[in-house]
């Protein structure tokens, strides 16, 4: 049985926080500053008094100096709801180090960072064309550990249709947090549709692609019958007969680069953050170096 996160790693994550780029809405009582003015203790701005305003917020010192009534405004703090979508197709349970382990550890880490910031975190499994709730609205450490236990038992099989699953999901939230999709994106599914759907409801979206080492640099030769991990039988269309030559490798490298470029171009056009990693990179290095460099973790 896998163990996605342990106390040692959690202690490393303490003191870190997710960096949310845009001010989002959310439930009251959180720890994230909102674009709107609220009732927190943190001063934000002044504005002229309008009849009907709360007289307790009039800054009488300014009235003494300018002989006009000004109202003191304070920052509004909201609780965010981060949603992490996990690709649980068979192709994710692959590679050495295993992509699924790598993905679950990253997901748990990001979830813990959200929970540590008093946010709520939901984990979803993309299974076929649907979005399956794994742990919804996890808050507090106790609930996180239960969620981590759920992730430990997560299984990977069949295929996943990111576009259909997220597009058809009933609750994808609103402008109240970060939506993280972790997948290898080695699919014909229309994942762009999913991203657009999330953006349409004001979500901040982060796409993380994980590829194993043999996907980046395959070790094949000669005449091979490539059996797709998601194929149901030998005659499945996803299986492919090929004669691997030097030219094949060149074409594969170009296809990989083209695919990643496609992801990057799309994400850039939507102001969506896209990151691609090899499962060989340790999660510690990923979070504390790569994510920090990308400004996702502070």
């Amino acid at each position: 049985m896998r163990r996605v996160i342990d106390d040692g790693f959690i202690s490393m994550l303490e003191g870190r926080d997710l960096c949310i780029r845009q001010h989002l809405d959310g439930l009251f009582g959180g720890n994230r500053r909102s674009d709107s003015y609220g009732s927190s203790a943190e001063f934000a701005d002044y504005r002229p008094y309008i009849p009907g305003d709360d007289l307790r917020r009039i800054d009488w010192n300014l009235y003494g100096r300018f002989d006009k009534l000004y109202l003191r405004l304070f920052t509004d703090e909201r609780q965010q709801h981060h949603r992490i979508y996990l690709d649980t197709s068979a192709s994710m349970d692959w590679g050495e180090p295993n992509k699924a382990d790598w993905m679950l550890k990253l997901a748990a880490s990001l979830g813990f960072l959200g929970i540590q910031a008093m946010d709520r975190v939901s984990f979803y499994a993309i299974r076929g064309g649907s979005c399956v709730d794994l742990c919804r609205s996890v808050m507090g450490r106790e609930a996180f550990y239960q969620a981590a236990e759920t992730l430990n038992h997560l299984s990977f099989y069949e295929e996943s249709d990111l576009g259909a699953a997220i597009f058809g999901a009933e609750d994808i939230g609103k402008k109240d947090g970060l939506s993280i999709i972790i997948s290898d994106f080695l699919t014909d599914s229309d994942w762009k549709k999913a991203v657009d759907r999330l953006l349409s409801v004001g979500r901040e979206v982060l796409l993380i692609q994980v590829l194993s080492e043999d996907e980046l640099d395959p070790l094949l030769n000669g005449k091979v019958f490539l059996m797709d991990a998601e194929a149901e039988h030998d005659e499945d269309d996803r299986n492919e007969r090929m004669e691997i030559t030097r030219d094949s490798f060149r074409a594969y490298a170009k296809a990989l680069a083209w695919h990643q470029k496609e992801l990057q171009t799309f994400c850039a056009s939507r102001n969506v953050t896209f990151l691609s990693f090899c499962s060989k990179i340790p999660t510690e290095k990923l979070l504390f170096e790569k994510f920090a460099e990308a400004g996702l973790i502070i």
Binding site: L186, T187, L220, M227, D228, A255, L256
Partner: peptide
Amino acid sequence: EERPVSSTFLWKLSRKF
């Protein structure tokens, strides 16, 4: 020779290249 892979997506895509 039968060789299992995670996905043939990129291999199929490589045919274009």
